[in-house]
Design a protein around this nucleic acid. Structure first.
Lengths: 316, 316
DNA sequence: TTGAAAGCGCTAACAA
DNA sequence: TTGTTAGCGCTTTCAA
């Protein structure tokens, strides 16, 4: 009609808030992240998942709203407030949610978590098979001939950290190799964490044989370890091999051998699952999809990983 | 009242879409980025600015909506559609907008650009003083004694690239040093770009003196150059110094000397300016703030930058 | 001070 | 098919 043409000419734009109010649907999804993770640059991990979410949302015709939490302890108060009908559902990235979270979660919005640390009823979780990734990597290292592999693990209580340790141990068991005693440490998931943990450990083990390889629980930890080794004039990988986990930008740019997690896919698939979940809620159906979706990991051998040196070095 | 308590108990949540419709204000800001920049991981730059925006929005009590463009050529069609009252204003990150953009920009929303490539009426721009950053860095290198500084510049037409070249040239002029001929190249803003450009240039200059230093137009280019030098068994910085620009995660983790841009601040300040702009529009006032805000840059000397070696090397 | 009513701009159900 | 009307859940205005 002429009306349409006139509207066009006058620069008419439909008001999306009015539409959302009328239809009871915002066509928007929210992403909840820990502010520190985003701002601190410590965890490029989040940004990669986030990139996947953005892309997934674009493909699904949804806009993406970012909500940040200063701390996951705020979740119980703030997440319900996020569900103010501006978004139809929420993706929680690596939420450290308590078990009772189901109690306060609004039922009118869909929830999907990526690498959630515990199962929450009604929240579909997407994750990658970290235990298998660690298993594959450590098995590969054992096959190369490494016997004293030091695992600089993540913080106690982080599910991902525990799973990487489990993979490390299972690989030893599968290869029939006794894991060297005291070779699993804990560190925070950062360069500094890796640095401190390894430096400390080396100081406490003067005179013992130097590990042939270091397996960091993430790329940042591995990076910190490389630092410490270089400072001691040890060559990587000629003297000590180092591998990380995640295959973030850090590992790619520093060429650190690592375990790749499909972070981008995790993000984009989370959107797809969330859309299904939202549709099921809006139609009043119950949920028929899977509650836990596991994506595979892949080992990425790079220049920091080689066969162990012939002669054992001693820590000094 | 008792009503409030009851509401609380029943889990009542105010409907933000209804409120937005009633008040004509969404209390949300949008961020427009080029999809490729976000997804491709080529430009950590964006993510850092984005982090600043998120933080700024949190401080201003606004939520952040992400809009992605596959290409800035879509801007004229899609940006007006983004202004559908779900956001009160938009921050454009590094927009490659054409000069005529003012024609199609809706007047009811506020616009702020970060590192916009050209001035658009009604759009406040925030940027860092790239020319001065390049000037400071190159002056510093000249003061260290470098005379043959190769500038691996960014793509033709990118405002930032041109400004870095201008700073490079002005530093030479200020020091009374004639810039060596043919020592300004062009590359795309990526590791691969730096690699190709430098490798190419070296092949074309066999037998000439090796540059004492390489100044990459961004950190990724610098990283690519380091790669090429290492492949030729040249030591950085003993044989050749290398510096970058931006101080992204890449430079920090690889310890590349660089020019720091306040990316995070650029993002958070953009939000503050945008809030002012939005308020002025809603109150029907005209805009009294600045149209172009320039933040300072800082040089960050790191291990890849040292004094030039005594004896000149020859390219082979 | 408190309460009732009229929009905000759209969609959806209904009537013509 | 087309046009009309009643909400969606808030804010704001105006009357009581």
């Amino acid at each position: 009609m002429r009306i349409v043409a006139a509207a066009e000419r006058l620069g008419y734009r439909p008001n999306a808030t009015a539409r959302a109010l009328a239809q009871g649907r915002a066509n928007a999804i929210g992403v909840v992240v820990n502010n520190l993770d985003l701002i601190g640059h410590t965890n490029i991990y989040f940004l990669e998942v986030f990139g996947g979410v953005i892309e997934g949302a674009l493909a699904a015709g949804q806009i993406t709203v970012v909500f940040t939490l200063r701390d996951w302890d705020e979740a119980a108060q703030r997440i319900p407030a996020f569900c103010d009908r501006r978004v139809d559902g929420l993706i929680l990235i690596a939420p450290m949610l308590k078990q009772g979270a189901a109690d306060w979660m609004p039922a009118h919005a869909g929830f999907v978590s990526v690498h959630g640390n515990c199962a929450i009823p009604g929240v579909v979780n997407l994750e990658s098979d970290e235990e298998a990734g660690a298993f594959d990597m450590v098995s590969h290292m054992l096959a190369l001939g490494h016997r004293r592999i030091l695992h600089v693990g993540g913080p106690v209580g982080a599910t991902g950290a525990e799973r990487r340790i489990a993979g490390y141990l299972r690989a030893h068991a599968a290869a029939g190799v006794e894991p060297p005693p005291g070779h699993v440490l804990r560190a925070s998931f950062s360069e500094e964490g890796g640095r401190v943990a390894l430096q400390d450990w080396l100081l406490r083990h003067r005179g013992s044989p130097l590990p042939e390889a270091v397996f960091g629980a993430n790329d940042a930890i591995a990076m910190g370890c490389i630092d410490v080794l270089h400072a001691r004039r040890l060559r990587v990988p000629a003297d000590v091999s180092v591998v990380g986990f995640d295959d973030t930008l850090l590992a790619r740019s520093a060429r650190i051998a690592t375990v790749q997690q499909p972070l981008h896919d995790l993000g984009s698939q989370a959107v797809r699952v969330l859309m299904d979940r939202i549709d099921s809620i809006q139609d009043g159906r119950n949920w028929h999809g899977q509650d836990n979706i596991v994506l595979p990991t892949t080992i990425v051998p790079r220049a920091t990983l080689a066969a162990p040196r012939r002669k054992t070095l001693v820590i000094d």
